[in-house]
Design a protein around this nucleic acid. Structure first.
Lengths: 159, 159
DNA sequence: GTCGCTGCAAAGTCTTTGCAGAGAG
DNA sequence: CTCTCTGCAAAGACTTTGCAGCGAC
């Protein structure tokens, strides 16, 4: 049942077009900064904090001056547009990931912070069923499993 | 299958004893502030922000000077002790709830912010199964369903 | 008495906002 | 050209920390 969620379910061009369309629809402008951020997010298979994303963009586009504020602004925009999804786990600060991948849930290692993705059809179905039972109009859902990943269990036998 | 999660599964005295024991075990002190915070959290059936909790404690214990810092410190302590659980949804800031209730998941209305609790055995079982499959040592988990609650659907037929 | 706790205010994070110049349409 | 964006720095929101006096044990 394990699937590789890192396979992009959408080509970058398609994603970019979608973004451009949304921008146009809202009389917003397509700028180099916005593309750089989207592209970097696309190329990274990780769950990035705004700060990490900012650093990456600066590395990848050394000629483009980009401020952290723009990263925040763009992430909000992308999130509203449904292009990226934000995750807010215990710690302070959110992490963002491209929402263009298939829906999935997260397993978070409390030792090393690694996030593993998974999908379980059974759970997906039950969620819908539950929402229905409560007369709740489900728009979205998320699930997290916290614990210690395989790697950390074997590596650090401390305690 | 709906259960009333607001029925306390633990008497306040029992909870308080548990708290006192934990304090003793860690050479920490049982203070009026700590009890006031625990009691207020117990009496409230809501998911409280530290600020809201602070306000409530001040109302309930007008003679007790209590600073917001103490609320934060006590909440951390209670969370570490497994007595309260923190929830961090999209918005900034966390909310806390007594963890002495049965485990449950949350359904969050994005219109009115109301949080409804639910429990589904099937999902609980699947989660354990998945963690096992990944060789992940599950310590905790949480699930949220976001959408529009029944009440908001009928009330505001806007859009 | 000792050592942890508390309120207060100051300091830290992370995020948002105001502004004037830059740039897309 | 117009109107949105952007970087910067300042401001905000939320949380943590340092400190001197207070209080539990």
């Amino acid at each position: 049942m394990q699937k590789n969620f890192h396979d992009k379910t959408m080509q970058y061009d398609v994603l970019l077009e979608r973004f451009k369309t949304i921008l146009k629809q809202n009389s917003l402008k397509y700028t180099l900064q916005r593309e750089a951020i989207l592209r970097t997010l696309y190329d990274s298979d990780e769950h990035l904090t705004p700060e990490a994303l900012h650093r990456l963009v600066q590395q990848n586009y050394p000629n483009l001056r980009i401020g952290i504020a723009t990263v925040y602004r763009t992430l909000s925009l992308l999130e509203e547009s449904g292009i990226v999804t934000s995750l807010s786990f215990g710690a302070q600060g959110k992490k963002y990931e491209l929402g263009a991948k298939e829906h999935h849930d997260h397993m978070i290692c409390t030792e090393c912070g690694t996030i593993t993705e998974f999908l379980d059809e059974e759970i997906e179905k039950r969620q819908e069923k539950i929402a229905k039972e409560f007369g709740f109009l489900m728009k979205d859902h998320s699930m997290q499993i916290y614990g210690i990943c395989h790697s950390c269990q074997t590596t650090q036998k401390k305690g």
